[in-house]
């Protein structure tokens, strides 16, 4: 059967990891490639780089990071942040990314997602949605069956008035292969995913949904899949500073009824590739 996925996410600024794992076994904890190698060895199911480089001059550094990672880590790699043009996508894919996450550019011009999916295939187009509960202080508006969620852009600073569930459906129709859904209410709180949001979007679209924002413990990962019906969970901070290892998180989820990919499945004693 298909397993659920854990996707560690690294924020990269001008080619350096902003908040990475700070294990003693890393020579250079700020090197995204070293971090990627570590997550690879721990059995991460995919890897995500979020390029937060603000300066224009620094923007090309991500291509080198992606290229160096792809040389060593034979696992799916998603890159997001500042993806605005078909040429941005082409350059990232050529560098070795498998998928690109489009956020603000999709809101600005939804046709961009359609063009990108037609040109490069839906399998590599992830639409990232930053959503917040509409109304005050995380409350629903009291209308209908549940809270309303709204799409925000520019790292959650700019509201769009777009309904997040409808937006996800539209992006799926336009050819997105996957939705990366971040709760801006929960992001950074360590209070767990916004399960209502995750569930509402996951139930509305036929493509996989990655839950993001708010993970503070291993139970949150379980909830994201079990209650939120996400196909994958993305987390950053719980893997920083050794709070939890990816391998530990996968084992915990598996023990709690979430089917995960555990174990190697390769007998290295009979030749083939060396363990890295």
């Amino acid at each position: 059967m298909l397993k659920n996925r854990i996707i560690p996410c690294l924020d990269v600024d001008k080619g350096r990891v902003v908040k990475g794992v700070n294990f003693v076994d890393l020579v250079d904890a700020g090197d995204p490639v070293e971090q990627a190698r570590l997550y690879d060895s721990e059995g991460a199911d995919e890897l995500c780089f979020l390029d937060i480089t603000a300066s224009h001059e620094g923007r090309d550094t991500i291509f080198d990071v992606v290229a160096r990672t792809a040389e060593e880590c034979f696992m799916p790699l998603t890159v997001g942040g500042g993806v605005r043009t078909l040429d941005d996508i082409r350059k990232l894919l050529l560098a070795g990314a498998d998928k690109v996450a489009i956020n603000t550019a999709a809101v600005r011009n939804p046709e961009f997602v359609r063009e990108a999916a037609l040109k490069f295939g839906s399998q590599c187009i992830v639409v990232a949605i930053d959503a917040k509960r509409a109304g005050r202080a995380g409350q629903g508006d009291g209308q209908g069956e549940g809270p309303r969620f709204e799409v925000f852009t520019h790292g959650g600073r700019r509201e769009t008035g777009i309904d997040a569930v409808n937006w996800a459906k539209r992006m799926a129709e336009y050819g997105a292969g996957e939705i990366l859904l971040t709760s801006m209410d929960r992001d950074g709180t360590k209070a767990g995913f916004d399960i209502q949001l995750t569930r509402a979007v996951a139930d509305a679209v036929s493509i996989p949904v990655i839950a993001s924002g708010g993970v503070g413990g291993l139970d949150h990962l379980v909830e994201g899949v079990r209650d939120g019906r996400a196909s994958a969970v993305l987390a950053a901070s719980i893997f920083h500073f050794g709070a939890h290892r990816v391998s530990e998180a996968k084992a915990y989820m598996n023990e709690n009824g979430i089917p995960m990919r555990i174990g190697g499945g390769v007998d290295d004693s009979t030749g083939g590739t060396d363990e890295r």
């Binding site: 298909l2 399998q123 292969g177 990919r261």
Partner: peptide
């Protein structure tokens, strides 16, 4: 209820 595309790790 299964998602399409079939995306992720599956057991051979």
């Amino acid at each position: 209820a299964l998602k399409i595309p079939h995306m992720g790790w599956n057991a051979l």
